[in-house]
């Protein structure tokens, strides 16, 4: 088998990716529904997502050792959840591609690059509330128009600022590191020991 063929995703890899992708989607969906009640939960959902998805991501890397699964999972996630916003497939594509690059750079082994790739993978999901920042004006107008008091509008205005956005990104960094390490720990503790992953 040539080197090129070895690095190409097979149908088996795609099936594996699909099954694990479903696990990712369930986690994100649950957090998104929880976030539907309050922006505070919504904003912290990415942090929690990152921690929870860590083991799933690391298993996907360990099992496939190829480029492709991560950008595909990001896109499928975006498509399944597109009722939320059009931006998910777009950010998913970018995040997924960056993630693939990091993983290739680390040859699917290097811990640092694995975690970097995981961070990009998580950033791909930032599209779920990003439109809120872009449609801020319309959003505040509509809320204000419907008789909200000024304090409410002011609070929302202060939440939808770019520093807050930066804070969310920072929380994803922290979440990715924790989740990534948690995932690597489970890989070693269970999957390698049970002989499921080499």
């Amino acid at each position: 088998m040539s080197e090129l063929q070895k690095n190409k995703m097979t149908a088996k890899d795609a099936i594996f990716t699909g099954a694990l992708g479903a696990v990712c989607i369930i986690i994100r969906f649950v957090m998104m529904v929880a976030g539907g009640f309050s922006p505070y939960v919504w904003f912290s959902a990415h942090f929690v997502d990152a921690i929870l998805i860590g083991p799933v991501f690391m298993l996907m890397v360990a099992k496939t050792q190829k480029n492709g699964p991560f950008v595909i999972t990001s896109l499928v996630t975006g498509l399944v959840m597109m009722a939320a916003t059009w931006m998910l497939p777009v950010t998913g594509l970018i995040g997924g591609l960056l993630s693939e690059l990091c993983l290739r750079k680390g040859k699917f082994q290097n811990k640092g690059w694995l975690i970097a790739g995981f961070f990009c993978f998580n950033m791909g999901f930032i599209g779920d509330f990003l439109p809120l920042w872009f449609t801020k004006e319309a959003y505040l107008q509509s809320a204000a128009m419907q008789g909200m008091d000024a304090g409410y509008v002011a609070t929302m205005e202060s939440l939808l600022t770019w520093p807050v956005f930066a804070l969310i990104v920072a929380s994803i960094v922290v979440g990715s590191v924790i989740g990534g390490l948690f995932g690597l720990k489970l890989m070693k503790k269970h999957f390698e020991k049970a002989g499921l992953v080499k």
Binding site: A11, A14, I15, G18, A19, G21, A22, I25, I72, V76
Partner: peptide, 14 residues
């Protein structure tokens, strides 16, 4: 096809 397969499996697995 890899994308189509992945998506089909995801939807079946949910």
């Amino acid at each position: 096809e890899n994308f189509t397969i992945t998506m089909a499996v995801t939807l079946r697995y949910l």
